[in-house]
Computed example of a mutant assay.
Amino acid sequence: MPTTARGLHVSLPIADRTSSMRFYSDTFGFELVGEPAEDGVPEPLMFRLDQRTLLVLVPAGGFDWVLGDSRGLAPAGTSECLLGVEVGTEQEVVDLVARIRDSGGEVVAEPEHKPWGYTALCADPDGHVWQIGIEN
């Protein structure tokens, strides 16, 4: 019997809640979920990506605690997954890459035409890599 997923949560470890909140709000324009805690950041720190998908940003110590003793966080500079966001036009790719750069993210690969579409690779301040693009 297939699993019927009611929702999908993508969780990433982060170093700083405030800077991560600002980065994802200002750069991607993702919808923040929840009421602010004492530090002005919702707890848990989540963004609604669509009706069924949440991006959950967890301080690294808490993320490590959830994983338990049998698994640890990936070493810095290691990408275990590639997140992707599809936009509508080449100009939107260019504009989003510029916002990422201006917000403290890293441009890993500048926008360019590939066999599968117009794409760029960028990393958030914690090093999580995002592929930004449009498909052919």
Rank of each mutant, 00 (worst) to 15 (best):
S103Q: 06
P75R: 12
G34A: 06
S70F: 04
V33W: 05
K114L: 12
D95C: 08
T119F: 05
L45H: 09
I14E: 03
Q51V: 07
D69T: 14
H113C: 09
D126E: 10
E106Y: 04
R71M: 04
E86D: 11
L67P: 14
C122L: 06
V107A: 05
T27S: 14
L12P: 02
G61P: 06
P115A: 12
D95H: 13
D69W: 04
G62H: 14
Q131K: 10
F63T: 11
G40S: 13
V58S: 10
A76R: 15
V129A: 03
F28A: 03
E92K: 12
A60D: 12
L83W: 04
F47H: 10
A109R: 08
S70E: 15
G34M: 04
V66L: 13
G72V: 09
P42L: 10
W65F: 03
E112F: 01
P75W: 03
V85P: 14
E80P: 07
E38Q: 15
L121A: 04
S79K: 03
F23I: 00
G105P: 15
A60H: 12
V93T: 13
A15W: 01
D39I: 09
E31I: 07
S19T: 15
C81V: 14
P36M: 13
A60S: 13
H9L: 04
P125Q: 10
P13Q: 04
R71H: 06
A109Q: 09
E86M: 05
A123E: 01
R22D: 08
S79M: 02
H128F: 01
E135T: 14
P75N: 09
S103I: 01
E92F: 08
G77F: 06
M21D: 01
E86L: 05
G72A: 15
G133R: 10
V107K: 07
E31T: 15
A74W: 10
T3K: 13
S20I: 01
R101K: 14
E38C: 07
E35M: 07
M1D: 07
G117V: 02
V107G: 09
P115M: 05
D26Y: 00
L55F: 02
H128D: 04
D16N: 13
T78C: 11
G105S: 07
Y118E: 03
R52W: 01
S20G: 06
D69N: 12
L32H: 06
R52D: 08
E35L: 10
C81P: 02
V58K: 04
F47A: 05
Q51I: 02
G88A: 15
G105K: 01
Y24R: 11
V87H: 12
I14A: 02
D126S: 14
A76Q: 15
R71E: 07
T4K: 12
G88K: 15
D124I: 00
F47C: 07
F30N: 15
S20P: 11
G133K: 04
S19M: 13
T3E: 08
L83D: 02
S25W: 00
V93I: 09
L55Y: 01
M46C: 13
G68L: 01
L54P: 08
V58H: 01
V85S: 09
S19Q: 15
M46W: 01
H128N: 11
Y24W: 11
A15H: 10
R6Q: 10
N136I: 00
Q131F: 00
V108A: 11
Y24Q: 05
L83H: 02
P42A: 11
C81H: 10
G68I: 00
A109W: 00
G29Y: 11
P36C: 11
W65V: 00
